[in-house]
Structures are given as structure tokens and as C-alpha cells.
Design a protein around this nucleic acid. Structure first.
Lengths: 226, 226
DNA sequence: TTAGTTTGTAACAAAAATGTAACATTTAAA
DNA sequence: TTTAAATGTTACATTTTTGTTACAAACTAA
């Protein structure tokens, strides 16, 4: 699952269209047709992002947004406002009220998708973290490079993600299920034996002559760094 | 890196917006949500400029500013005050307390950028450069020219923006989504494959005989300079 | 020890990502 | 207007990555 998105929008056809496409892209979606319901549902649903219509039958989008910001648990909830108005002035007003981005109707779904990704990326800066290191192994998330003993090593994408995952908690033993869940993109079905093969590939890549084996096999439990 | 900027501002959405855009322009940015934290962080961060909100939950911007001026190492730190009030009277009060410039909310990012550059130029006449450089590559933002190995290279508009974007953080790997977001500001609606084509065109343009390839492909992640 | 289970390894086919050229359309310039 | 430049898209070739299988090797428990 990619994340949870809540929609407050009074036009059912827009909700339907957006919801359907978002779900196709791996998001969990819920929605309300007006502001007051929306505010209640929001708390139950605990979304990662809110799509908010500017014009609603009861409260305006701006009011909702201000309301949300008062609630501590939603202080940093990313909000994308959907609006028919396109004036610069309105945009700034909106940004001042804590909206993260704008979309003027009518919009294409691709555009919405791009903005959602962008806003989520900004609010979850998982790339900001430093390098991951363990013994003589260094993984640079920004430049996507891996070094052992100061020499660069070439890894395939899955090997890279696998190593990155292990490096967050080296020494910790992970089951194949845990590895699958964290290293493979959204619940794609792969045989659990597949992991063995990738472990093997990773081992091959990070092993240097005269250096010790870095991946430990824990029989019937899984793998870890060591 | 163009310089270090510290922000003290209690509205997370403003921080997010400003920080994101400043980083895009090559600044290193850090921030605090209130005055007391801000004063502590400031010393660690040692910025070249401070963006200071007038209204904060604990200390007022004016108080912070006076506080800062007492500290010898920050006696000349340029400060731009962000304020919702626009009255002349307040402005004078503020300037009296050692603020270098003012910005009334809501403001456009371009306006902020212009003031920052102006203030930095005044206080550090040599640190604000409009050239981006990497190895033997030079991009002149003022004259819109690009040189490799001292020889000028002709780039198309998109190639130019693309290269400009990469040069702010060379070596950093950017996904196609990130590139789209930053290089195609208005029209997010382009196929992601389009980027490959433009990368290819840029590569062709900046490659000189006997010189190494400057753009790295990171499979399934994106591109970077190298 | 043996039988049964778990893991390592290599090979292979399928799928995915990328590079490249060609083409159509839009935009800017003369 | 005509012409050239810039741009986005598509199609196809090439390379890389991936999942799976089959079998060998290692381990465990009785």
C-alpha cells in the first residue's frame, strides 16, 4: 500500500474518477461529500494526504484547512487544494493558509498523480538521512552508491534496496516475509525462494577477497548482517 | 552551495515551501518553529542569513533580533523579517532593531529570492555567484551560456534548464519524477520517457571528444551528474 | 548414522528499463 | 507568411534485471 488519501469534494463524479484511479495506483482512499462530515471522517481515517475542494456546500476549503492545522495530529498533514479559480492572488492566500499545492479544475489524472507524489516526497524526506554504514560498508542514498573498504561496488536495484534495508538495522535477523514486505514494491507476489537468490547475488557483489562474509544465514529464521 | 540560510517561522507550510525552493536554488537550509529553539540552532548552523517571522509562539521576532545582535559572532548576520503587518510604523521599528529587510506576507517566492540575493550581495559582495560549475563545466545563469573546457556549448532551452537543475546538486541522483517537477514547472503533463530523450540530447551536446561522459544513468532510479 | 528439511548455486527465459532514431506537432524567428 | 528550431511522442533494438527452476550442498533431529 502506497499511502492513505482522503478526499473532501462535493462532486461525486470527480470523487469516483479520482478514487478509482488512485486505488489502481496502490493508494487506500476514503472520501466525504462535505466539510463537516469530512472533518469527522478524517480523524478516523488518519490519511497521509488530503485532497480538498475549494468550494463546498458547508465549509470552504480554506476554513477546513485552517481547522485542520489547529489539530495537533494534523499539523503536518499535506493538503492539495482543488479549485476552479486560478488567480495568483488566491494561490498565495491558499499557501498562506497551509495548503501544500494547488490544482485547478479541470485537471488530468496524470497531473494530480504527479502533484501527489511531489507533495508526499516533500513531506516524507526519506532521502535526507545520512549515509548508512556498517563496518567497512558504506551506502550513499543520495548518490546511490555502495562502497566496501573505500572501493565502489556495483549493485543492481534490488540488491541495493536489500542492502539498504539490512543496513538500517544491521545484526537484526529478518524473516523472508519481512524482507519481502519491505524490499519488494507493493505486495507483488514472489516466491519466498526468490529472496535466497537475491541474497546470494548480494553476497557475491559485496564480497571482497580476504574480507569476511557480511551476511549471516539464520537457519529457518532468515538473514541479517553481521 | 550558495550559502546557508536559517528560518525561524512557526507555520510549517511556509517553512516547507520556502525551504524547498531555496534548496532548489542551491542554498543549504535549516529551520526552527519557535524562537528559543531557533536561537540555539542558530549557533550550531552558523548561517549566512536569517529569515525571521515577526509573530512567534514564544519570543517575538524583534526580541530575537535584538538578542542576536548582542552576540558578537552574529553582529553582522543579515536578517530578513517576515511579517503579516504592513504598517509603516512597524517597519521603522523593525529596521531600528537591526533588521536588514522586510517582507510582508503573503509574498511570492520570487520576491523573497530577490531580497535574499540583494541582502547577501550587500553584506558579502563576493559570495553570491550566478555561475554553476562542476569539473570543467560552467553554466552562467546571467548570460545563459554554458562552457565545457572553456569552450562554449550551444544548448536548447530545455537542455539548459536540465543541466542547470543537475548542477545545483551534482552527483545527486534524481528520479524522473523529481526532474519533471523541477525542470518542467508548468506542464507536469509529459510522459516520463520524454526525459530520457532530453537527457540523450543533453548528453550529445555536452560531450566533447576525449572527455568523459558527464551524465550517469542509475537504472530504475534516475540520472545524475558525475 | 539416516531421512527430511533448509539453503546455496547456476542456468535460463521472461520482463523491464534504457538508448536511439525518426516523426509529427508546436513554437519562435525572419 | 515561410522557415527553422524546439519539443513531445512513438517504435524498436539493446542491455540489464528479475523470477523461477532444478539440483547440489549443508544442516537438523531422531
Amino acid at each position: 500500500m502506497n499511502g492513505k488519501i482522503f478526499i473532501i469534494e462535493d462532486e461525486p463524479s470527480i470523487i469516483q474518477l479520482v478514487q478509482h484511479n488512485l486505488e489502481k495506483n496502490g493508494f487506500l482512499v476514503s472520501s466525504s461529500l462535505n466539510g463537516n462530515d469530512g472533518l469527522k471522517e478524517l480523524k478516523k481515517f488518519q490519511p497521509d494526504l488530503l485532497l480538498l475542494d475549494w468550494m463546498l456546500p458547508d465549509l470552504s476549503g480554506i476554513e477546513i484547512c485552517k481547522n485542520i492545522r489547529k489539530d495537533n495530529s494534523f499539523k503536518n498533514l499535506p493538503v492539495i487544494m482543488l479549485t476552479a479559480k486560478g488567480e495568483e492572488e488566491d494561490k498565495i492566500k491558499g499557501l498562506d493558509s497551509g495548503v501544500d499545492d494547488y490544482l485547478t479544475k479541470p485537471f488530468s489524472f496524470n497531473e494530480l498523480m504527479a502533484r501527489i507524489k511531489a507533495v508526499l516526497r516533500r513531506s516524507n524526506p526519506n532521502t535526507v538521512s545520512d549515509n548508512l554504514e556498517f563496518e567497512d560498508l558504506v551506502l550513499d542514498r543520495i548518490e546511490k552508491r555502495v562502497y566496501r573498504d573505500k572501493k565502489e561496488i556495483q549493485l543492481g536495484p534490488t540488491e541495493f534496496r536489500l542492502l539498504e534495508f539490512f543496513l538500517v538495522n544491521p545484526k537484526r535477523v529478518y524473516s523472508r516475509d519481512q524482507i519481502l514486505e519491505n524490499v519488494w514494491p507493493n505486495n507483488i507476489n514472489v516466491e519466498s525462494r526468490t529472496i535466497d537468490v537475491h541474497i546470494r547475488r548480494l553476497r557475491k557483489s559485496i564480497n571482497i577477497q580476504n574480507k569476511k562474509e557480511l551476511i549471516r544465514t539464520v537457519r529457518s529464521s532468515g538473514y541479517s548482517l553481521i
